[in-house]
Design a protein around this nucleic acid. Structure first.
Lengths: 295, 295
DNA sequence: ATCGACTAATGCAAAAAATGCATTATTATG
DNA sequence: CATAATAATGCATTTTTTGCATTAGTCGAT
């Protein structure tokens, strides 16, 4: 069975019109017609109800449209992943990262990486839901920087460094590193936090933090995007808690106050990976962490 | 890209020998050789390292073997599901069920179903892990009988009936329906239970039960298979708790003592299902439940 | 070093499949 | 009833696939 036929079918299932479809896929109407006949024949399944004027999908056709659409995408994705493996250091890796490292560690890392493997194509994404584990296992990502260690037997993990978590207040705020005693004193403050209800590691870290200090913060605004939070704080709309990495974001009019708590940065990637470029990228990550820690 | 080529590749990736592979797939060696060349060409990916004497997979080849193997299976499965839809009431449905209903409700249901839809092919499985939800969503099952209601927006659920949960003891045991007061009196008894650590609904039901009566049972033996548990009880190896349905299993030498707790039986299936036979099967299930309740 | 056995690739001719044009057959519309 | 629309089909042409026979490397035994 030819995948091409399936692709044609998927277009036809959208268009429901042989001529337009034929045009869209650059073959003649007659060829398309015969492709569809052949496909139905091969499967032994009626896919289309044709009267001489209209085309519509049978139930089985609708089902196969839904299912095939997904699988064809997956097959394409698999192929592009295989290509990356095939091309090794001239290929590519796709990397996910938390927003906090975008200002210092990540640029340092990319710079380092680029000088070591100048031909490697790099694809960066900052995932919203931080489900790194799934992204790695589905080959949507090859290397995931994250705030937590993934515990999965087919994923390798490495701690790069730890950094303090900071309370961030507007410059004009009464609180300073010197007069800061405990989070408990901030019960009446308004917080801007990244979605506490979320399942990300940082969200659960925060929940836990407030739980330990035994109070519920007044959350004024929620945002997943650290840069946004920072800018709201600088506008005096509230205070927040973020990893100290954000101090490199050059936000104006804010003050960072270090807490006792620390948060780690981890690097996660698939074990037994066939894409050999990734090993090199991992090495480079470890090296960058050294560099970073010494700065 | 022809799926057939991929199938050939998967065989070749196992055999690593063109002649043997060609024989296994009933084509000539030359044809196979050219198929593999064409496949590599199309993908732009080297799959095989050939010297004149040996064949082995490249890294990309290994990757594609792993991934394609899965996807090809999935595509086949999709196709067979489409076939069932296409054939309607002359097609088939696959049904999962918990062991407890195998003695009375299920035979009644199947009998009823068979008289209503005599051409329908039925595939029965008793899943170990009871992850009905996933089975339904992956189209591994079309209708799932289970002890819990699945709450998923694309799954429809219907309560068939509720039945008491029973304590089951050997005939010679001192405990009877009359002298039974509370589970608490059974702290010193030895239990044979279905794996309490499991994630099945019945396991969590049991955990909850013991939690409410505020004691931890002494679990002597664990088994997932109700029939086995029953036979162990009849041999005097311990006592157990199971849905009262098991009383239809005609186990010798055991006594059932009804508890106050009840447990339901639910029927779950996909919403907006294209396989029209399933609607009829569902109806039939509801009808059977009426019948069953009146008996 | 030489020979023979083994194995993947290739030249070639025959067979099969796909393609597009022109045409047909059917149906909806005015 | 004429017309426009549209999917299927006959047919000649082109492209692809197939298997046989052969070639060309490679390994191992002598």
């Amino acid at each position: 069975m030819d995948l091409q036929k399936i692709r044609y079918f998927l277009v036809l299932a959208e268009e429901l019109h042989f001529w337009r479809t034929a045009e869209r896929v650059f073959i003649s109407q007659s060829s398309l017609s015969r492709h569809m006949q052949a496909l139905e024949e091969e499967l032994g399944i009626r896919l289309l109800e044709r009267d001489k004027r209209n085309v519509k999908l049978t139930d089985a056709g609708k089902f196969l449209q839904q299912q095939w659409r997904v699988k064809v995408r997956e097959l394409d994705h698999i192929q592009s992943q295989a290509k990356k493996i095939s091309e090794g250091e001239a290929g590519g890796v796709s990397i996910t990262y938390p927003g906090s490292i975008a200002f210092k560690f990540l640029p340092l890392f990319l710079d380092n990486l680029n000088s070591k493997l100048p031909n490697l194509k790099i694809e960066l994404t900052e995932p919203n839901d931080e489900n790194h584990e799934k992204l790695l296992l589905d080959y949507k990502a090859d290397l995931a920087f994250g705030r937590d260690r993934i515990t999965n037997s087919s994923i390798e993990t490495y701690k790069l460094y730890a950094e303090p978590v900071c309370l961030i207040v507007p410059k004009a705020h009464w609180l300073t590193q010197e007069n800061f005693v405990s989070l408990k004193d901030l019960q009446s403050e308004r917080f801007i936090l990244s979605g506490l209800h979320q399942k990300t590691f940082f969200a659960s870290f925060l929940r836990n933090l407030f739980y330990n200090y035994d109070f519920e913060p007044q959350v004024l605004i929620e945002s997943d995007f650290g840069g946004m939070i920072l800018s709201l704080v600088s506008k005096g709309l509230g205070i927040t808690i973020l990893p100290s990495s954000f101090s490199y974001a050059k936000a104006e009019n804010v003050r960072f106050i270090e807490l006792d708590e620390e948060i780690g940065l981890y690097m996660n990637w698939r074990k037994n990976e066939l894409n050999k470029a990734i090993e090199r990228v991992v090495e480079c990550g470890k090296e960058t962490a050294m560099l970073y820690s010494e700065m």
